[in-house]
């Protein structure tokens, strides 16, 4: 009789399914397929796809590469902590270190240029959250993620850490300049 009793028709699986129910199942199925195709479509025609390029690394290896990049491309330092501002060569590679509790260094980019930004963490998980653009990427220790980015507007951008990384998490704020 009801959902808390055994089905009244012992051969319930032989009961025909109502037209309306079939229609709804069909709609749900088709909608699922559209959403599936949409992701693939965006991989082909869309301009915002998260890069697939990632390598296993270690904090030491990544830090060494980043330090070399910083030494070669620093244009000035900013803030009391003398954080280097590093101009990433147009079309070239930039490195961004996530560590407790800072994004290091400050990157300087140009509008309309495409950069390969290498992201990795020295310690815990961190979250690369570019504001106010609102792009959010997980940063994981032991993995070097190479993300191709093309800024579309000039300005001063903040990198908020949006993966909880301990007591100083809220002070982990970085900066990107787009000229």
């Amino acid at each position: 009789m009801s959902a808390i009793l055994p089905p009244s028709d012992r051969l319930w699986w032989k009961q025909p399914i109502d037209k309306v129910e079939w229609a709804w199942i069909g709609i749900a199925f088709v909608w699922g397929m559209i959403m599936f195709v949409m992701m693939i479509y965006w991989h082909i025609y869309g301009k915002q796809n998260l890069s697939n390029e990632a390598y296993k690394t270690s904090p030491e290896m990544f830090a060494a590469k980043a330090e070399k990049f910083i030494a070669e491309n620093t244009v000035r330092t900013e803030t009391e902590q003398q954080i280097p501002v590093v101009k990433v060569p147009a079309g070239g590679d930039g490195y961004l270190i996530a560590r407790l509790w800072a994004w290091y260094p400050i990157l300087e980019l140009e509008k309309g240029q495409t950069y390969k930004i290498h992201l990795s963490s020295m310690d815990y998980n961190h979250g690369f959250s570019l504001q106010p653009v609102n792009i959010n990427i997980q940063v994981i220790p032991g993995y070097e993620h190479v993300v191709k980015m093309t800024p579309t507007k000039e300005g001063t951008y903040a990198i908020v850490c949006n993966e909880y990384c301990g007591i100083g998490h809220h002070s982990m704020l970085g900066r990107i300049y787009v000229k």
Partner: peptide, 16 residues
Amino acid sequence: GVSRRHWDMAFSGAPF
């Protein structure tokens, strides 16, 4: 853009 698990929207103690 506001983060989850985040204590301070004013980022006190941050360099920027």
